[in-house]
Nucleic acid binder design. Structure first.
Lengths: 336, 336
DNA sequence: CTGTTAGCGCGTTCAT
DNA sequence: ATGAACGCGCTAACAG
């Protein structure tokens, strides 16, 4: 069997009896070019018949820009929700003609630069911030855009703020509304999660401050009792004990897993009446004892917004604003 | 600010006072070319000083092969374990100079061909099988390799068999060893998971058949009682009831989440003494009531094997064999 | 030995 | 609707 030669635009041109230029114009529907419907159809026929697929490499080389959006995944465990978000994002970007790919694995494996060098993406999406050098290197290499999720706003190029604070705020509001005044915060054990945990905790603080500011007895401006809660029953029990001692009756957990640990700790201590609220609504949440009250983000809407932002940035349009109103919802079950 | 021109090998050549060819030879350490250490160093200096990064597009165009390995993710929810596997795989491939990226999102969004056309990968990794047409198209387009996880072995090119059957076998063996003779199987509700569920269930059957074949009362060659278990307490309870009626005392669940549902169902019915074993060891497993016994796969070893297989295939070497002996382990807790 | 010249791979786009 | 040049790196053939 002979080496299966790639089908190029020259093949299509030959088959259609036209020049390669014409093929290009037809296939790209280049504006400002008048091509007769007859030739147009012949080219389309030929392309389809041969199963022509333009070489992404050649096109990228020529135009200096690919249609790939690269997402650099952080090295912390990817849960279901993030997986979900990525899926939605991929779908949304596909509608805009962009191909979404994610690169897992820590930066320790390879310098970050090597990754995008190998891909030549139109945009890079990251969860953590880039250093100025990295940002500059990407600009220099022709990467159109750097978007950093969770980055401090306004430092580099464009930034997207996924509203993590709001998550914490909603949690606290729910607990406060159900009669819990002294709150605890269950902080994750894994230091890599800090980047998400801090803004969420800040959101809880905001909600508490708003309440204490409103109440006449402005003295109790106490923030939440923060305890680090490993995913382990015995260690979680220790945290529960401390909260009890401090008079805490409601706990906002970093996410559902940490919340489950709190529940397990309370159970081990036979403590009842400690309200717990998680984040994410993982499948295990509804199956927990008691069923876990939690907070979810509308991933579809969020993904759509991220997609629009990316598209806008790639094409140089201004960044749209996210309406965060209905983005985050409480799923009330029995734990809080 | 002027348009930041890309730095090309010509820039490096100019700076080092040599030709572009020399730059290429030095930077690629091309064998069979003798270049004096002096020039070599000058080139290296220049490259480093300018922050030169070869254009992946140009290189791919010229060589017809990129160093990217593309993984097509299935559209079912990817959990922690898969995320983990991808991370390990990425690390392992990085060591071989390959860049790993994953594309989430269903094939409904875009025809599968569009994806790899946009990436020009050296290899494509998929969980589900490809059609013959797709396989042929990839070959024709110059994609070096098609690897299908979970594919029926031997149909297309190379195939990797992630040992799902073994997972089910281990589960059943554990239950049988702890005195449970009549087993149930908790099948997932989501039809997209069937591709994983079938081989696991088959593994359970294998283990049961082995036992009944061994025992003198060969009559009880009964397979497991299969019940579909949605992630919902009430519906799971129905399944538990049926198992009870059939005298089942031990249940192998498709994964930990389904196992948690079974546990919740049993709890709702106040049924005690039903042994349950899951798969994956998700964080919630150890926090369940009772703590969930489960089966885990050594993702690091598996990832290493996948990586070697991919590398072997890309470079045309024979596929290595996976030693499955210690790959899958039971994590015994209290539920079984 | 040491390093250079020249042409290719493929799609895009300007000028004719 | 076309010829020709271009983007960038690789490498066979060749000269000092």
């Amino acid at each position: 069997m002979p080496e299966p030669r790639r089908i190029t635009s020259a093949d299509v041109a030959r088959r259609a009896g036209v020049s390669r230029a014409t093929v290009s114009y037809v296939l790209n529907a280049t504006p400002g070019q008048s091509i007769s419907t007859a030739t147009r159809d012949r080219v389309l026929q030929a392309a389809a018949g041969l199963g022509y697929a333009p070489s992404a490499a050649a096109r990228t080389l020529r135009t200096g820009r690919s249609d790939v959006v690269l997402c650099l995944l952080p090295d912390w465990p990817i849960g279901n929700e993030v997986g979900n978000l990525l899926g939605n994002l991929s779908t949304a970007l596909a509608r805009e003609g962009l191909t979404f790919v994610a690169h897992p694995g820590s930066r320790a494996d390879r310098p970050i630069a090597e990754i995008w060098k190998a891909i030549t993406p139109a945009a890079v999406l990251s969860f953590t911030d880039f250093s100025d050098d990295e940002t500059e290197a990407m600009r220099a290499a022709g990467v159109a855009l750097v978007v950093a999720l969770l980055g401090r706003a306004g430092r580099h190029g464009r930034e997207l703020e996924v509203p993590q604070q709001l998550v914490g705020t909603r949690q606290a509001e729910h607990l406060l509304a159900t009669g819990h005044a002294r709150l605890g915060y269950a902080y994750p054990d894994d230091p890599r999660l800090q980047i998400f945990a801090e803004p969420r905790l800040a959101g809880v603080r905001t909600a508490l401050a708003a309440v204490s500011g409103r109440s006449s007895s402005g003295a109790s401006a106490a923030g939440p009792r923060v305890e680090t809660v490993p995913l382990d029953v015995a260690q979680a029990a220790v945290a529960v004990e401390r909260w009890r001692a401090a008079g805490v009756t409601g706990v906002c957990a970093y996410n559902d897993e940490v919340a489950l640990a709190v529940l397990a700790g309370a159970r081990a201590l036979s403590v009842t009446g400690l309200a717990v609220i998680g984040v994410d609504d993982i499948p295990a949440a509804r199956l927990a004892v008691p069923p876990l009250t939690t907070v979810t983000t509308d991933q579809r809407t969020l993904a759509a917004h991220l997609a629009t932002t990316i598209v806008a940035a790639v094409s140089g349009r201004p960044t749209p604003v996210l309406r965060t109103a209905d983005l985050i919802r409480v799923v009330a079950r029995e734990s809080a």
